[in-house]
Each structure stands twice: as C-alpha cells, then as structure tokens.
Design a protein around this nucleic acid. Structure first.
Lengths: 354, 354
DNA sequence: GTGAAAGCGCTAACAA
DNA sequence: TTGTTAGCGCTTTCAC
C-alpha cells in the first residue's frame, strides 16, 4: 500500500519554525498551563489548514489511552426498532465527539466480537441486555475490561451500581392488556418468540398478571424466532386449526412490532378481520406498522429520550468515573390505532367499501 | 479514568523469559522469515491466554499504518434498504477481519464526518453515491485521502478506473413499466422525491423512455423527501384532487419501497383500491412491504451479492493496489405481488370478503 | 511562551 | 530460532 506522504506535526513545526510540541498545543487549543501566543497559534493553524494536516488518531490514542470510540452492544441487528435506536444513539454520541462501533452479541456473551477486530473503546452502550448487571460485569471482566464505563439502556434493567436508562414495559403491558379488555376482548393471548427469554421478561409477567386480574386465562403463543415470517406462519397454523365452535383469542398482545406485523399478515391470510375478529397491539413503535391498511396499535418506547439520557450518562461517567450512579426509568406510551380500536362499527363500514 | 494495569507484550515476554519481539511473532503467527519454535509458541500462547492479553490496536496501527477499519459511506440512514445493505456489508467485511465505521454524508460532500471523530480507515465502501467517480476522487483528495482504496456499490455507477458493483436499475425499471403496461395500465406515473437528483437517475430516464415507447405520456409525481409520511400526503393530495371525469394514473412506479409504502397508505386513505384502481410497483425489496394486506410488487436489488462482491473487491484492492479495476453490473429482479397482479378478479373477491 | 526529552505498545529490520 | 535496535506520531512533563 503506497503510504502517502503523511503530514505530521513535525512537518508543520519545521515550516512554522517552532517545535512540534508548540504545534500540538496550538492545534489542540489547550487551555492548561501551556499557553501559546495568539500570533503563533494563528500561524500554525493556517499552516495546518494549508498543508491539509490530519491528526494521526492511532498515535494520539497510544499516548492518551483514549479512543473516543464507544461500543454499541446489542443482541441482534435485524429489527427496525434496533436500527432506529442505533442511529439515534450514534447521533447523540457524535455530539460528544464520540464515534460508534457496533457490537453484535451473537448469543449471550459478546466476547468474540469485543476481542476481535473491534478497536478499543472508551465506553459501552449496552442495549436491551436481558441477563442482568452481574453477568454483564463478569463478561467485561473476562475480557479484561472490568473498569470500562458502560451504561445500560432498554427494557431490561435491575437496580445495581451501574448507570442505566430503563423502560418500564410492565406498566405499559398492563395498560395494553387493560385496553384490549376494555374494548371487549375476552380471550387475550400473548405472542412471543422463544429467543426472548420470555419467562423473565417484564412483558410476560405483566401480561400474565393483568390477564388474571381481569379474570381471564393467560394464553401464550410462542414462535421460534422473532421474525415476521415466523410469526406469520405461526398464526396461520394456530388460528387455522381452530373450528368455529371452539373459542379462539380475540385479542393479541405481541412481544414486539415485528412479530405483530407478521401476526397481522397471518390473520389476513386466514381472512380474520382486524380488529373486528381479533384486536392487535404490538410493542416498540416502529414506523412501518403505521402504514398497514389497518395501522397497528403499539406500545411505543421512548427511544429518543432513552438514547439521549443514556449517552449523556455514559459521557459523564467517562469524564468522571467517581460519579454516583445515574438511573432512571422511562415509560412507554400506548398508541391506539385501528388494529385495536373500539369503534368497530366504523371499520365495519370501511371494510365493506370495496 | 483509572487506566487498568495493561498487559503488554513486554509483560508476557518477561514471564516467558523471551524478548517481546518473540512474543509478537508467536502471537501473530508470522509465516514470514521469522520462525518461532513450536515450544516457545505454545508457552507464549498459553501465557497470553492466562494473563488475558489483548493487543493494543492503536500501537499496532501506529507502526503498521493499517487500522483494519473500513468506512461505509452512505447518503442517509433512515431507509430500511440502507440498513439491510449496511448489515450485510458489515458481515462480509468481518470475514476479512475488517471492522466498519459508518459515515453519513449529510449533503453531497461527506468531508465533515471523515475529517472528524471517525478514525482512520484502510478503505471505503461507497454506497449509492450519485455524483460520479470524479467528484468522489476529488472529495477524497480534499481530505488528503487520495490514495485510499474504495469500491463503489449500488445503482449509480459509471465506467471509470475504480472498482464497483453496479445494479442496473434501468433494465429493471423498463421491466417494471412494461409489466404495468401488460396488466392493462394506461397511465403510468413515476413517484419520486426531489432529493434523489432524479433527473440523472437511471430509474427516471428508463421510466420515461419505457413509457414513451409504449405510446403513453410520462407523468412525474414528485414529493419533497423520501419518507413514508411525505409520500402518503402527496398521494392524498394528488389523487384527492382528481374528479371522476378526469383521467388519473392507474399504475405507479415508485422510486423506492419506502415511498411505495407511503403511496399505498395514501391510496388506502382515499379508498382507492390496489391493484384494481391503481397498480403499484416499488423498488429495493425491503421486507415490510411484503407484509401489507396487499403485498407490494417491487424491483428487488441483489443486496447480498452486491455486498459480497464489493467487499471482496475492496479487500483485494487493499491487499494489492495495482490490481486492474474490477467492475461488474448486477440485475435487479422484478417481484410481482398482489399490488400489481393481473388476476384482478381474484382480488375483487378478497376485497369483498369482509 | 516555548522547547527538549521521554515514552505510549507495538512491529520491521537486521544481527546473532 | 531468537534478540537488539529503532521508530511509528503524538502528548506529557518539566526545564528554560
């Protein structure tokens, strides 16, 4: 690789007739005990501009020990909600001058990615990590990163020593179930995928409780993976096997919106009407479920606020490791759209228009 | 920041009773002229494992001049198709031991991001860059990165000296238009956003030509931005203002699937039936348009193959800068779904079922 | 205000 | 097969 003629501090220093240290100080605008005269600063700045100087990040990192890179640690990458959150966090971190490296933790332990190509980072944003703080710290320790600042973010959170921004899906789920009950659903099921460790999920327990409190029987519809296709075929199978004389769910709360949209399609396949025959509520708040012929209700997570706070917490901790833990829990918002609207008559009309 | 006790090569060397250079060679498995005995190698490897050694990437980069990081350069980040492509490329590059830094070029010149926090990279994947190779090289030169290897990828490509993997949307667009014509559309319009420099876009010109060749009049429906919301409101306005006695488009080819799904929703709003009243074809092949009540036809881009080839080309160029340019053009695939199906009778039935 | 010297952790060259 | 030396480009410390 033809390494192109690198413009170093020294090169600028020579042309400016000063030492390379002076150039460094001038460029970095140090307000420490080192002061550079306005004249030299200008001269150096102009020269750097003119010569097209670009600092060597590796050299700087080597001596300062700071990379200005943050790892964004996630379980999976194939969900629109993840992408929305990821890009929000990227933007927030950029405001702090921090770049982002995406870390996809295959299974429960992301040791592989962290240990690999991914360059060193100054901190980690841990998104929707379901295994608790202890396990997280242990994993980090295994990687020799015990002291690496991190912030938890998302719907899994437990009180601990770490900074986190939680989202209280239990409260939201309760709301969603009550909503379904209120509009008249008598058999409310929960659609979830196996991979979601769903027995320890706040949605699962909150759903179970809420349904029981309403005097109904919980019913779990479990698909193998959290994909649209999988949810669709599951629904076709599950609902397709019902006879007319047997009761079937008339309200579905879905673990997330991707599942919900697969479920919706599955119901379409069977000619089951939403919301008249089955009402549907998803979770997350991804954009595309709003654009279905029958827009889906959802439990919208406060992604913007969550990211903003988490990035702020992390930035502050990087600046000052001895800060006391910052922990906050946000609430999702139940967005009621046509898929679970009580004004059934209205939709009866519309569905007959064609 | 309490810098934790770093495990360096030297530390391992001392414990192993060898020089740090030996350790370096043993760990990197050098097959060059430097050979390490199997015994020392084992000892060093075990020790490194035991002490939890993690190489200092910055130091390595400083001396080798290689970061093993690739910049993924894109125009915008808010499109599901982009996300799909991005993650595909990430995976492909990881196979080559390369990490990825996402570079979002705000306007036409991404100088800002490249010059900023983003660490140095060994190469660039340029995705759907509409401004041509010359402009690209110029931009790189401005940044002092004239010799940085890059590969172009996507639907904008022109013959030149650079490696690229193109997608021939002109051919695909022709197919799409002909398809719409074949199923009986007599007034086929093109829905596009202003930001897409659409007059220089292959889709635009191919659409225009194909429509004219069919003896029809081109009609451009132009929205301000490429968002679902914008497309939806545009359609509501555009079609809402038509009287029954005036002809209106009965076939729409959309610049991309995001626009298509907004258009679809807008048509729903107006009670216009798809495909009976208006047939719809999008472009890209994002997943969620397959899950609408009326799945959308689309011009599916060969994202997997495109990414695989582009990453391969880039990797090879990084290894060997003097390779002759590798250029290839792939074809999109027209996927016909219900939104433009000719079996209108069938859908007539379905739409009356409720 | 500025400069000189040292060194971050690693690898490339050469010598042994 | 292994060790020695040098240096990547930058910042930090301390002396001037």
């Amino acid at each position: 690789m033809p390494r192109q003629p690198t413009i170093t501090l020294k090169a600028i220093a020579e042309r400016a007739g000063v030492s390379s240290m002076t150039v460094s100080a001038a460029l970095s605008g140090k307000s420490g005990n080192v002061l550079i005269s306005e004249a030299t600063r200008r001269r150096v700045l102009d020269l750097a501009q003119e010569m097209g100087y670009r600092p060597n990040v590796a050299a700087r990192t080597l001596v300062t020990g700071r990379t200005n890179q943050i790892a964004f640690w996630t379980q999976g990458v194939s969900n629109p909600y993840f992408n929305a959150v990821y890009h929000l966090a990227r933007r927030d971190l950029r405001h702090y001058g921090l770049g982002v490296t995406l870390l996809e933790a295959g299974g429960r332990s992301p040791s592989q990615p962290l240990a690999n190509v991914d360059s060193a980072v100054d901190g980690v944003v841990v998104f929707d990590w379901p295994n608790g703080e202890a396990a997280l710290r242990e994993t980090l320790a295994t990687l020799g990163l015990a002291h690496l600042p991190f912030v938890g973010m998302g719907c899994y959170y437990v009180a601990g020593e770490a900074d986190y921004v939680g989202v209280d899906l239990a409260a939201g789920t309760r709301q969603a179930v009550e909503h379904l009950y209120t509009i008249g659903c008598q058999r409310i099921a929960y659609v979830v995928d196996q991979g979601s460790h769903y027995e320890t999920d706040a949605r699962w327990s909150a759903y179970t409780l809420a349904v029981q409190r309403a005097g109904l029987e919980p019913e779990y519809i479990v698909t193998s993976v959290a994909s649209r296709a999988s949810a669709r075929s599951l629904v076709t199978e599950y609902f397709g096997s019902y006879r007319d004389d047997k009761p079937r769910p008339d309200g579905l709360f879905c673990h997330n919106d991707v599942i919900a949209s697969g479920v919706y399609r599955g119901l379409c396949d069977l000619g089951i009407r939403v919301p008249q025959d089955v009402a549907l509520v998803g979770c997350d708040g991804i954009e595309d479920i709003e654009y279905l012929e029958r827009p889906l209700s959802t439990l919208r997570q406060p992604a913007e606020q969550m990211c903003a706070l988490a990035c702020q917490f992390l930035y502050q901790r990087i600046q000052n490791a001895s800060l006391s833990p910052q922990q906050i829990v946000l609430c999702p918002e139940l967005i009621v759209r046509e898929s679970s609207s009580r004004e059934l008559d209205k939709y009866q009309d519309i569905s007959q228009r064609s």
